[in-house]
Simulated scan of single mutants.
Amino acid sequence: MTFKVAVFGEALFDMIEQENGDYRPFIGGSPYNVARSFSRQGLNCSYLSPISNDSFGDKIYNSATIENIHMPQNNRSFQATSLALVYKNEQGNPDYRLYRKSVADLDISADRLLSNLPEDLDLFHTGSLALVPEMLDVLIPVMTALKSKGVKISIDVNVRKGVEIDHAKYVSAIAQLITYADIVKVSDEDLLLQDLVGDPQELASNMLKDMTNGMVVLTLGEDGAHIITENINIKQAVYKAVPMGDTVGAGDTFFSSMLAQLLRDNALTPAAEKEHLAYALKYGSLAASINVSKIGCQPPTHAEVLSKLDELCCA
């Protein structure tokens, strides 16, 4: 059975500073990384956010075509492609500046997004820079319609500093959208950027109070990940990447691969067997380690993850 998924959120270009001071462009954006991973996991994936008709947008469109990602015919926009300038600050640490005004991926209405939703959808995914106040009037009607049809909704919180001048308004928008989700991914850093201070597992558990029969996936960097429901808390350690490439897209690969496995096991519900939830968490963690063993976001296929699982079992 092939599951049908749709992704809404930014596809952008990361302009990454090189050692000589020049900037090199890379296609990125958390939701777009998720769409690539879904497709490589064998899911029937549609990417629904508008893509600019500028030269950067052409590259994104061509990339999606190569990845076998479906796109609506009317998804090109005259607005510009969003950019993220990635550089080292005065302390020598990575920092970034987002260029998000009048950009293509925000150039959409609720009616247009509703009309572009595929039939018989199993999962709708969004997150990251789509969770901004100006998108509430788009996403809330769409999510309401999806919930009425029984379509599962996943959200990757992925908080970004500097997205909105009014940070409190941004955090409030995220909180509103989480109430529509069946499963939410949040990191310990995301919690801090939402001004939530305390034990990450307890804070993640508290998010369930605002969800209906939901699940929260908590990532803790080198300390692994948890899947948390009202009744269980399953932990998964990190799989070390050999060789080590970089961590670009690791979280996107982890969550999308985990979601793909939950769909395959019909386990995208807190009522699922604990063994299925634990296996999906393990599967996502292993997929992330494969991605981290490479340079840039390069999500593995379903076959690649299964092969790695076989190696672990035989080791």
Rank of each mutant, 00 (worst) to 15 (best):
E90Q: 09
A104C: 05
A168I: 05
V142P: 05
S102M: 12
E189T: 05
H125V: 03
L131T: 12
L191V: 14
R160F: 01
D166P: 00
I174V: 11
A110F: 01
L129E: 00
A145I: 15
F124W: 14
L193N: 12
D120P: 13
K147D: 03
T126C: 01
P118K: 06
N116K: 04
Q73C: 04
S128Y: 11
L98N: 10
K149A: 12
D156G: 09
L114I: 03
Y170V: 05
K152G: 01
N89W: 03
R97D: 09
A80T: 13
Q201A: 09
N158R: 08
D107P: 01
V142H: 01
L85E: 07
V157D: 01
L136E: 11
A145R: 07
K152W: 13
N74I: 02
L136I: 01
D95E: 08
T126H: 04
N89C: 00
L177K: 01
Y99G: 00
K185D: 14
K185E: 05
S128R: 12
L98D: 06
Y99C: 09
G198V: 08
L146V: 03
D195N: 14
Q194T: 07
I174G: 02
A84R: 13
S128I: 11
E202V: 15
N158Q: 01
L121G: 08
D120A: 06
V157Y: 10
P141L: 14
Y170E: 06
K185R: 08
V151H: 02
R97W: 14
V184A: 06
D137T: 10
G92L: 11
V159M: 03
I174S: 01
P200Q: 11
E90G: 08
L177S: 06
D122R: 11
Q201Y: 06
E189D: 07
V186I: 12
S82H: 05
Q79T: 05
L83S: 02
L123M: 05
A110N: 10
V186Q: 10
Y96H: 12
T179F: 04
M143G: 06
S82D: 00
N89R: 02
L83T: 06
V103T: 13
V103H: 06
D111C: 07
V197Y: 04
A181M: 15
A130H: 04
I183T: 05
M143E: 10
L193T: 00
A84N: 10
M143Q: 11
A145Q: 14
D105K: 09
V159D: 05
S154H: 10
D188G: 14
L193Y: 13
Y99R: 09
K161T: 15
E119H: 13
L123Q: 06
P72F: 05
K185N: 02
N93A: 13
